[in-house]
Design a protein around this nucleic acid. Structure first.
Lengths: 251, 251
DNA sequence: TTTCATTCTCTCATAATGTGAGCAAATGAA
DNA sequence: TTCATTTGCTCACATTATGAGAGAATGAAA
């Protein structure tokens, strides 16, 4: 009848519809009105709310008003953990396929934290999971910086100094600012031995439901791709994986 | 058959059982095992998980592993708001019944924040909702301090100075420490014009599911109860209300 | 106090719904 | 490759949710 993706869970779907309504409303609208909005009879709405209330997923406010229950706090997701577990299988596949090392990193206190490392080829890389590196000289770091709010980005740029690590490391804030703008526009970053000699890296951002950059993934190898076509193929695979992870996490 | 408190929501209950299992497990156990633990056939478990996954309440990790979805973050409860809305109707009733002013407060940065004020009698009190007061000289404040971990309590006591506001204000840390110990033991605090002349106040704590003190409620009037029996009745009513609020929020 | 409008709980006959075995395809590790 | 698991799907069946209705409870306003 509905032709939607649901099948055999109409009751659960209706219950969760109401659940989400109640939580989002934050106790402003009486249950009867919320139920009407979803075309759920009051009688049924009460039965459903009671079921959630038993588990402390919903709490009672003033007469007719309900809100999020404290039980939800216990179930709240650890964003880092979810990010790690949801992305790892996809990064592993990508790394093996491209015979390079895949990373996922997030920005924490102006540093990049590597949450996932999946080695695909023989490359021996010094990175470890949970290791922190400077942001300005890594592909993932630059993508994350490029995704910051302008104010936060400027604060970072003012926070220097940016120590030279290789011949290609960017140490001038102005140069870095221009580079970040370009990265934000292009949607990906290149790290050509800026962090360590002989390391080439390609990185793209991960967005949350509202389009904010929350993490980034990268592919690292000992040499740049031989041809422009090879580079393009690498980027495509990386972006496809980014898409896949985003879709696992959000819509 | 089961004789439990559920009625007409067996499908929903089973689905939420699985939901909670998945979330608590944090991706350690494959779905098949979790399902087995709840005596849910794999076939059914997949159908249910898919329903939650559609709403991003559950996300996919490695093959067979599922975890909390990012959608939960949006629905996370604002603890202050829940506390306010769940307690207000009960405090209002209490205030009217006892013809005194009822407050609910929490400890924030060593100060008491009054989240709820319900005036029952004619008493004109200077307090406002969201107003912050010193903790050492109010009933609610003393109950909250008494409920702190010993280390945190000592830190507070070392943080003085404790300014004298009335003739009965406690200004000596040692005296205050002894008083708090007594309060923790008795389960309630008395404020006899320690904050302002002519204000008598009785306060009791609110506990979360693990028994930690998270908030406190009080009844304030312009005079002490005339008799010991009256004082006892007041305390009983206050404790009954505390119980009722706790049961709304937790188990 | 006495309205009065809602909310809330319960029951019950009905049919709409979830159920779960079983099969086949997909997946990932060895 | 092989093998064990996971995953998605279908379908016949009866367990299950459903929602109207009535009465009790509640809280605000007069």
């Amino acid at each position: 009848m509905k032709g939607k993706g649901d099948s055999g869970t109409q009751a659960l779907d209706r219950a969760l519809d109401l659940f989400e309504q109640v939580l989002r409303d934050r106790g402003r609208t009486p249950l009867a009105r919320l139920a009407a909005r979803l075309e759920i009879p009051v009688s049924t709405a009460h039965r459903l709310v009671a079921a959630f209330e038993r588990r402390h997923l919903i709490a009672r406010g003033a007469r007719g008003h309900y809100l999020a229950g404290m039980g939800l706090a216990d179930l709240a997701p650890d964003r880092r953990l979810v990010l790690i577990q949801a992305s790892r299988p996809l990064l592993r596949r990508l790394a093996r396929q491209e015979k390079r090392t895949a990373h996922l990193g997030i920005l924490e206190a102006d540093m990049v934290t590597y949450l996932v490392k999946e080695a695909g080829g023989g490359t021996k890389l010094f990175t470890r999971e949970l290791m922190q590196l400077e942001a300005y000289c890594t592909g993932i770091g630059k993508v994350l910086l490029a995704g910051l709010e302008p104010a936060a980005r400027e604060r970072y740029l003012a926070g220097g100094p940016f120590v030279r690590l290789t011949a290609t490391t960017m140490t001038d804030p102005a140069e870095l600012r221009a580079s970040l703008a370009e990265i934000a526009c292009a949607g990906h970053a290149v790290d050509d031995a800026e962090m360590a000699e002989g390391l080439h890296c390609l990185a793209v951002p991960l967005h949350d439901g509202q389009g904010r950059v929350t993490a980034a993934i990268s592919l690292t190898g000992e040499a740049s791709p031989a041809t422009e076509d090879a580079r393009r193929a690498l980027l495509d695979a990386l972006e496809a994986t980014a898409q896949a992870i985003e879709s696992r996490l959000y819509g």
